[in-house]
């Protein structure tokens, strides 16, 4: 059976998110393997037509006041309408603040199986197999969905983005029949993060600091400038967060954020199992720790045994030079 794939493309500030291209690339491969077509759904104002070049043959666009900031009721209804219009049997979305609510609701509403936070998707004998981490990435499970429609969310940075294959899409306005009753939970205020850095879950480079930084002042003086020099997002161990060196939102690990960057630099972090769980899929891990026996070194691609207060500034200097 051909796999017709609908990709939910999220936007931010009117721009399509990077994850949209990541998912469309994968969707195009999967659809080609099974002889299906790819369509996309976009909410609000964004350059919907441009998704044609990324493999979508049809782009469904829902617009209007309900599609600025996320409203669960309206967005689930519109996704449901897009699935019906596109005839999709597979729906892909990026694992995000929206899909973590909207996809389970959709799943329960239309009786579609859901596999969240997949790190790989493959076509196998006409079916899609999703691979997702469980136990915070200490194990992986391969998942198949039996229902007529299967829903998948994909962790950001799971697939590389190639060149756009080219092509064009027809853009179709989606009328989901939104009424006031669908505006069930309203956003009354948006609190932007203090920093401009990319969010940890989507970051391609991360520099994290641990308890060893000893104070918020030295965390700010050592970890943040190094992150800046590396064009990276700062992160922290739980010990550093609990000590008040960094905000809760910066915690990496099993009870913080699970990250998937291509470069993760750990400064004075021991590598406790709960921390490793949050960052072990990083492509390259650099550990800087004065204890040669620290467990983090077992996972490090490159290790430096030494005092972070000496090494971090030297590294900051080299990175600033290299990335200028």
């Amino acid at each position: 059976m051909p796999t017709n794939i609908l990709v939910f493309c999220e936007t931010e500030g009117g721009q399509l998110r990077k994850s949209a291209f990541e998912l469309l690339g994968k969707a195009t491969q999967l659809a080609a393997a099974t002889g299906g077509k790819v369509s996309a759904v976009v909410f609000g104002d964004a350059d919907a037509a441009s998704l044609g070049a990324w493999g979508a043959s049809t782009v469904y666009v829902a617009s209007g006041p309900a599609f600025g900031t996320y409203v669960a009721g309206a967005w689930v209804k519109a996704l449901q309408a897009a699935i019906a219009s596109s005839g999709a049997n597979v729906v892909l979305g990026s694992a995000s603040g929206v899909t973590r609510e909207a996809f389970p609701r959709l799943s329960a509403r239309i009786g579609a199986g859901l596999s969240v936070e997949c790190t790989d998707l493959r076509a196998e004998g006409g079916a899609i197999v999703g691979r997702r981490p469980v136990y915070a990435g200490k194990a992986l499970v391969d998942v198949k969905i039996k229902s007529a429609v299967g829903l998948y969310t994909v962790r950001p940075n799971s697939f590389t983005i190639g060149a756009a294959p080219g092509g064009s899409a027809s853009v179709v306005a989606l009328d989901a029949g939104i009424t006031d009753a669908d505006l069930d939970v309203k956003v009354v205020e948006t609190l932007k993060p203090a920093t401009q850095a990319v969010d940890l879950t989507e970051a391609d480079r991360i520099v994290s600091g641990g308890r060893s930084l000893k104070s918020k002042e030295s965390f700010d003086a050592i970890v943040r400038p190094l992150a800046k020099a590396a064009h990276a997002t700062p992160g922290a161990s739980r010990a550093a967060v609990d000590a008040g060196y960094a905000p809760h939102g910066d915690q990496v690990g099993q009870t913080g954020k699970v990250v998937n960057p291509s470069l993760y630099i750990a400064l004075g972090i021991s590598g406790a199992i709960q921390h490793l769980a949050g960052m072990r899929t990083s492509r390259v891990i650099v550990a800087i720790n004065k204890d040669a026996e620290a467990p983090i070194f077992q996972y490090a691609t490159y290790g430096i045994v030494g005092d972070l207060f000496e090494i971090a500034p030297a590294l900051e200097k080299e990175l600033t030079k290299a990335l200028a």
Binding site: G111, A112, L114, L140, V141, K146, S147, A292, Y302
Partner: peptide, 18 residues
């Protein structure tokens, strides 16, 4: 509707360099 086919451990990371 969701069937778990097989569980595995993540591949070991290749040894790093100090």
């Amino acid at each position: 509707l969701v069937v778990e086919e097989a569980m595995s451990l993540p591949p070991a990371r290749p040894a790093g360099r100090i």
